[in-house]
């Protein structure tokens, strides 16, 4: 609690605010994740990122229906706008 007060985070959006200009990890619907430098956001969690790496996670299934090890497809985008309604989670990347 003290920590929380100390950081002055009074609402969750502050957490996002603190990540402005920093690299964030964003989990999106549809098994997608995105990391990039957060440039802007709004209350809808619309977000503008740069130096983005988008990852799409697949879990393929064999013909028998057994899941194969998860697979990921990545791509890099210089600048990306992410619409807020797809956002599940935002976290500053650990470092």
């Amino acid at each position: 609690m003290d920590d929380a007060t100390n950081t002055g985070i009074s609402e969750p959006l502050d957490l996002v605010k603190l990540s402005l200009g920093e690299r964030v990890f964003i989990k999106l619907r549809g098994d997608r994740t995105v990391t990039g430098v957060l440039h802007a956001y709004d209350a809808h969690m619309n977000v503008v990122l740069s130096q983005v790496e988008e990852t799409i996670h697949f879990v393929d299934v064999t013909e028998e229906g057994n899941p194969l090890p998860p697979r990921a497809e990545r791509r890099n985008v210089e600048m990306l706008f992410v619409r807020g309604d797809g956002v599940i989670l935002i976290s500053p990347t650990q470092q």
């Binding site: 950081t7 002055g8 957490l15 605010k17 603190l18 500053p92």
Partner: peptide, 26 residues
């Protein structure tokens, strides 16, 4: 964080947490 820390002086404290830093920067 900033004002908070400024109020107390003279003693060793833990470094600012990243969150505190970020908040102070904002």
């Amino acid at each position: 964080a900033a004002s908070h820390l400024n109020e107390q002086t003279g003693i060793h404290r833990a470094a600012l947490t990243r969150k505190q830093i970020m908040f102070a920067l904002e």
